[in-house]
Computed example of a mutant assay.
Amino acid sequence: MNHLTIQEQTIIRQIRSETGKRNIDNISRTNAYFHFFKKNPDIIWSFLASMVSRNGGWNMCDLEGSIFPQLLDVKVRKQLFLTYERANWLIFHDVFPQLLLYQYSTKINRPMFHLLPYFNVSAFIQKEWYGYWKENDRKRLTTALIINEQNVIQTPVIEHPVYKKKVFRSMIFSFQDWLHFSSVLFPTCGGEVYGASANGFKSLSKRINLGKRLANILFHPRLFPYFLEFAEKTPHTGSRYDYEQYFKIKTKRNTPLLRTSFPVIAHNQHIYEDWSKHRRVSPKWLHHPVRHRHPIHLTDWYFTKSNQLQLLLSIHKVLELEKWK
């Protein structure tokens, strides 16, 4: 840091401070992504991040909703929450300094990406930011950020021995994966839901492919205004009632508010490794065209899955089964 100018040192300190302030919980992260997008609408990945982060909050609150506490042991639910939270935290910790540095660069009309190494971001994404500054290719940057952030969580979360054993090899995770219960949803204020299923979550390539498909849905010219309207009108609470309130069939709140259900978690920073130094960037990650194998309009699917969950709960009660541990 000694060879940096006072201005550069100040920028680094301010960005670290701002990132820390926003990286408190799922609510603060979701809001930070969306706020950034509104200030910097060319960085469309930030809107994608805010909508995917909303889904992360909904998944967290499902764990304390009307169904999962009756099916899952409290230890399992806690471990699932910590897994969602860790991935959520790590991605924000990695990407938000990148976003803030870009924002600062636009203010002074000069790229400041030479400071990116001070935030321990991959060589891959550093190169991509320089490329974006020159080419202004939004789609390329969005894809690059999807690739980067999924690689960021691969080793410390997906391949971490504790998460691997207690979460990704667990029966409930396999069950969710198999039945496509874990989906990323983009709601509208008209009571419609769009999105894509997230099965094969353990696979890095499948998660990257999902991210690309989600970006394709979110920024579809016809649909984007509806998703933006939802995001602007609907404060993120973590409860699925955020969007269920818009359904034509009225429903009661089945999942709680995130901040009344979960504590703020103090995270330890893992030892940083640049994933791009030891993991090859597959050409298909960057260049493979997006294909939707399943319908993206999921309103009917959502009600079907909700009914299946209720049925599962009923069977569980009738058979007097133990909670999954």
Rank of each mutant, 00 (worst) to 15 (best):
R77D: 04
R77V: 01
Q79G: 15
L80V: 08
F81T: 11
E85S: 12
A87V: 03
A87H: 03
W89L: 11
I91V: 14
I91T: 07
V95W: 01
V95F: 12
V95L: 12
P97A: 08
L100Y: 10
L100E: 07
Q103K: 07
S105D: 05
T106S: 02
I108T: 12
N109Q: 15
P111A: 14
P111Y: 07
M112K: 15
M112N: 13
F113I: 09
L116S: 08
P117E: 15
P117Q: 15
F119W: 13
N120C: 07
V121L: 10
S122C: 13
S122I: 12
A123M: 10
I125W: 02
K127L: 04
K127E: 08
K127A: 06
K127V: 00
W129Q: 05
G131A: 04
G131W: 03
Y132E: 03
Y132M: 08
Y132Q: 06
W133A: 02
K134N: 11
E135R: 14
N136G: 11
R138D: 09
K139Q: 13
K139G: 09
R140W: 08
R140Y: 08
L141R: 03
L141G: 07
T143P: 00
A144C: 08
A144G: 00
L145M: 10
L145I: 09
I146G: 04
E149H: 05
V152E: 01
I153V: 10
Q154R: 05
T155V: 04
T155I: 05
V157S: 04
I158A: 08
I158K: 07
E159Q: 11
V162G: 00
Y163E: 08
K164L: 10
K165R: 12
